[in-house]
Design a protein around this nucleic acid. Structure first.
Lengths: 253, 253
DNA sequence: TGACGTCATTGAGATGCCTCAAAGTCGTAT
DNA sequence: ATACGACTTTGAGGCATCTCAATGACGTCA
């Protein structure tokens, strides 16, 4: 673990000094070009838990990178309930799905105190006219998202409750790992309810699966704190295809 | 109806003369620039039913546009069954999800005799370095796909069997309509089995829902021929959010 | 620190879809 | 024309998950 996940960060770190630069958009730019990206990025005040970054139907104007905290995106079903479409952790980019419309197709809300980098899309487009590598990176981001959504569709149409939750936990673990945090032990930023909503399960089912996983020694969980105690078994439940080869968990510390 | 859906087309129509140019990639290019796209497009022999365009794991090299016929993409589940991830009709583009990997993440197979335009990705990237409008179009395509996948995730996690099939039929209808064909009456290119696989339902359930829909006068179906008899009801079942405002069906001819 | 509201857990019963099984229909190729 | 295989339909029963209900734990704020 390099540092604590929610360590305070000054609110105006330059991209070149940001610890996430190797995961975020700067990935596509050389050191000297990063400063240009830096110039167009707006860094707002931190969002408090429950505050919205944008609402479904808002004028599309920017894409966003999470710097700390966590964001969920959701849309309203026909019956007016919320359907969560994604969770975003630090270094992850959201807002790209609004690109071909005038308005955001989902709402984005902070699940805890969250810091955001805002990248006005018009400027990002100008910058990507300038840097082919940046636009390829954007394309790759979107392409990756399409593949991830397809994995999600597979989860929703073929997996049972146990497999869904195993997959979800393994996926979270690998995302934490990528950011340099422990993949064995972490804090969920979402409630059981939100998890169930996202995974197409009732809260009660999520809760029962958690209980069962603990009885079987797969995980231990106290509230939102989760520890993966048997990642081999959990991966097996999740199904090998869920993780990229470079995302395989280390089995022991 | 402007012409029959499966009317024979000569196998080497230039983009500028293709009846699908207003729906396909040329959409992003001016008349004189289209010829450049034209030059990089490879037009192969027609694929027969069951033939593959590419296999999961094949080296990623091109994106493809369907010119006539129909393609399905699928991937293998952990248990080795096939999971269909999409159906592609004429003018629709597939292969973009492979963009950020070396290999295609899905297999693509012809569901009937199908003609394809192949666009080598390297050349497409060069061309889009030249034409900002083309690359914005590509981005929009991907962004649209992300939104559609999210609709699909919503379908899979919140809708029951009736709603899934209503949504599917309405979606197909609007895609036919966009291409200038009847949205009231069309031929399914997929089997009940494939439909169920895609929608996360057992074949038997699909069949039962079709029967029920016919009893209730929503549709009539003989084999793969489907007629929508009550599009208002069917849309209501599908849920308003499923269709873009510009995809709303005309209620009567 | 105590009280409240939110979130999580557990139990019991209902249900929608799946599985298995069998018969019926269609398309196709010989 | 006929026979075969593949696809579709229908029925019966089982099961995973949902729904409803109640209790329990936690976090937060006065």
């Amino acid at each position: 673990m390099t540092s604590k996940p929610n360590a305070r960060q000054p609110s105006h770190v330059a991209c070149r000094d940001c610890s996430l630069s190797s995961l975020c958009l700067p990935l596509a730019l050389s050191i000297k070009d990063i400063d240009q990206l830096d110039n167009i990025i707006k860094r707002g005040r931190p969002l408090k838990k429950g505050e919205h970054l944008f609402l479904e139907g808002d004028q599309f104007s920017s894409v966003f990178a999470v710097r700390s905290g966590a964001i969920k995106t959701y849309t309203a079903t026909n019956e007016g309930e919320e359907q969560i479409t994604g969770f975003y952790l630090p270094s992850e980019i959201l807002g790209l799905s609004g690109m071909d419309t005038d308005t955001y197709p989902v709402s984005a809300q902070a699940m805890e105190t969250t810091m955001i980098c805002e990248i006005p899309f018009e400027l990002l487009e100008m910058l990507s006219d300038q840097f082919p590598e940046l636009r390829r990176h954007l394309m790759r981001l979107m392409s990756k998202r399409i593949r991830e959504d397809q994995q999600m569709m597979m989860l929703l149409s073929k997996k049972n409750a146990d497999e869904r939750i195993a997959t979800f936990l393994i996926n979270l673990a690998s995302r934490f790992r990528r950011r340099g945090f422990s993949s064995q032990s972490f804090r969920l930023s979402m409630s059981r309810n939100e998890m169930g909503n996202y995974l197409g399960l009732a809260v009660e089912t999520v809760s029962r699966v958690f209980t069962r996983f603990q009885k079987n020694g797969l995980i231990s969980a106290v509230g939102k704190e989760v520890e993966i105690r048997n990642s081999v078994e959990l991966c097996a439940l999740a199904g090998g295809k869920t993780l990229d080869p470079n995302q395989i968990l280390v089995t022991s510390a």
